[in-house]
């Protein structure tokens, strides 16, 4: 990750505490919109976190941030992803760990392969990465962080929602 992006994210994390995950999710949504998402639904409360249509393909993302290199996926998270698969989407877990060398891991979810409620290391998720998707969003995410970090820090989710509303492709949840 670009060190400037990393520093901005760390600043965000330090200053926004519990909201950090949701703020990162919204910035990722902006990044997808910048990369040409045709439709994007971002949910802060219930349902799958991001529903993105890119080049005609529907992707459903459960977005996770972790300070260390491990995370736990609840049954509810996985059930949500499975519902998305049933509805025709490709289900992904988007993971951003907390080190300078960490990038987004776009982990393709296949039912049964990732156990619920188990502490998973990012290492264990690597086999399911979609590098193309990761590369696609990488620089757009860095740009979005640079552009919107101040809004995220000072105006929190409301500010980023306002930014999201500027994109015609952004659909209401």
């Amino acid at each position: 990750m670009n060190p400037a992006t990393y520093r901005r994210l760390m600043e965000m994390r330090d200053k926004t505490d519990k909201e950090y995950g949701k703020l990162v999710q919204k910035i990722l949504a902006i990044a997808f919109l910048e990369t040409g998402a045709e439709i994007l639904v971002e949910r802060s409360i219930q349902g799958i976190d991001l529903d993105v249509t890119l080049a005609g393909t529907r992707y459903a993302f459960e977005v996770k941030t972790c300070e260390e290199d491990s995370l736990t996926l609840g049954k509810k998270d996985l059930a949500g992803l499975e519902r998305e698969i049933a509805s025709g989407a490709e289900a992904y877990i988007a993971v951003l760990a907390g080190s300078l060398l960490d990038e987004w891991l776009m982990v393709r979810y296949t039912p049964g392969e990732i156990p619920p409620s188990k502490k998973l290391s990012t290492f264990e998720l690597r086999p399911y990465r979609n590098r193309e998707l990761e590369r696609r969003v990488e620089s757009a995410f860095e740009d979005a962080v640079e552009k919107h970090a101040a809004t995220a820090i000072y105006e929190k989710q409301k500010g980023l929602d306002r930014e999201l509303e500027r994109y015609p492709a952004r659909a209401l949840a």
């Binding site: 060190p3 290199d69 080190s99 300078l100 060398l101 290492f123 264990e124």
Partner: peptide, 27 residues
């Protein structure tokens, strides 16, 4: 294997971070 790979990655990352983050620390 998982543990060793993770440790190795962490070790390399630590080394790289130390090198990469030198300007960062100065920053």
């Amino acid at each position: 294997l998982k543990k060793v790979a993770a440790e190795e990655l962490a070790r390399v990352e630590e080394t790289l971070l130390h090198t990469i983050d030198a300007p960062g620390r100065e920053l």
